[in-house]
């Protein structure tokens, strides 16, 4: 009797397919279709004037992009913005995590306040920081006048606009970093701090030998995450500086937007967006090769 009953249970594969396949198909479509379409565009010269026309031009766009001085400028802006954003976000995140890790009253309230910047939108952050940093409305101006220096302080200028963007971006990302680091900090047994005290470690030594080691893999992962987020960031820059003044803050994302939507040079924009994708993936891979692999092994 029982022998005749074949098991009614599904195998892992059957069950996984049943649950995940439709979604995976959707996901692959929404990843594969835009990528495929963008690839097609990047290999064609598309024109709208005098009727829609698409002419195959091979890798010409890619060659043009590589030789384009504006592209190189944007690449540099992106790299500088990303480096500053990531460094700031990681340091701010770590400091916030260390502060939150202290026992204190109203911890829930403090943490609720601290996570706010991450919860609000990037365009909101853009508006907020443009009011904070521009000369007409900025806090710099207000402070300067309060101190008797009667001069508008505008930091959204050619020299400092990238730093303003980086601070705003870091302000938005740091809470996420902080909360995950905080979760790691909480797993450090307090006995280890007692041990460090017995060994008469200084504060710095304690930080380096007790606090930091368990955080290292998380730091790596969030360095990757914040790098990717910074490189693909668009709306925040669009709202805060619009790529300006001039092209001082025209990151690759902004340049792609401009080529594609303003100048309607779709093939060129698409070729550039592959460069950006290559930059994002390349940087992550390099980070993994130089840092992540070592951390993953040490766990």
């Amino acid at each position: 009797m029982r022998a005749a009953q074949r098991t009614a249970e599904l195998s892992n594969l059957q069950f996984s397919l049943l649950l995940a396949l439709p979604v995976l198909v959707f996901l692959l479509l929404v990843v594969a279709y835009p990528l495929g379409y963008a690839l097609w565009m990047s290999l064609h010269e598309i024109s709208f004037f005098g009727g829609y026309k698409a002419v195959f031009v091979g890798v010409e766009h890619f060659a043009d992009v590589i030789g384009d001085r504006k592209f190189k400028k944007s690449l540099w802006v992106t790299v500088r913005f990303t480096l500053e954003s990531v460094a700031l976000a990681m340091v701010a995140g770590l400091l916030i995590a260390l502060v939150l890790n202290r026992k204190m009253r109203f911890a829930g309230l403090v943490r609720t306040i601290v996570i706010l910047p991450w919860c609000i939108s990037l365009y909101g952050t853009g508006v907020i920081f443009s009011y904070l940093a521009k000369g007409q409305t900025g806090i710099g101006t207000a402070i300067a006048y309060a101190l008797g220096i009667e001069e508008a302080v505008n930091v959204v200028n050619k020299q400092w606009v990238i730093e303003v963007l980086a601070v705003g971006n870091a302000w938005n990302m740091a809470p996420l970093v902080a909360f995950f680091l905080l979760a790691n900090l909480k797993t450090i047994p307090s006995r280890l701090y007692d041990l460090a005290a017995i060994d008469r470690m200084s504060r710095l030594e304690t930080f380096l030998n007790v606090t930091l080691p368990p955080l290292r893999f998380t730091l790596f992962v969030f360095t990757c995450i914040t790098t990717v987020l910074s490189m693909k960031l668009f709306d925040f820059i669009f709202v805060l500086s619009g790529g300006g003044p001039g092209t001082a803050s025209a990151t690759l994302t902004y340049r792609i937007y401009k080529e594609s939507f303003k100048d309607l040079d779709l093939g060129y924009g698409a070729a550039m967006s592959f460069m950006l994708l290559a930059l994002i993936l390349g940087t992550t891979l390099i980070l993994y090769g130089l840092w992540g692999r070592r951390e993953a092994r040490s766990i």
Binding site: L17, L27, V30, V31, S260
Partner: peptide, 25 residues
């Protein structure tokens, strides 16, 4: 299940795609 890691990678790739690149398509 087979090819799990490749599919996981595809998901992470989707996270990394910049919206400006997929806008036109």
């Amino acid at each position: 299940f087979p090819h799990k890691n490749k599919l996981l990678f595809a998901i992470l790739l989707a996270v990394a795609l910049p919206p400006v690149s997929t806008l036109i398509p």
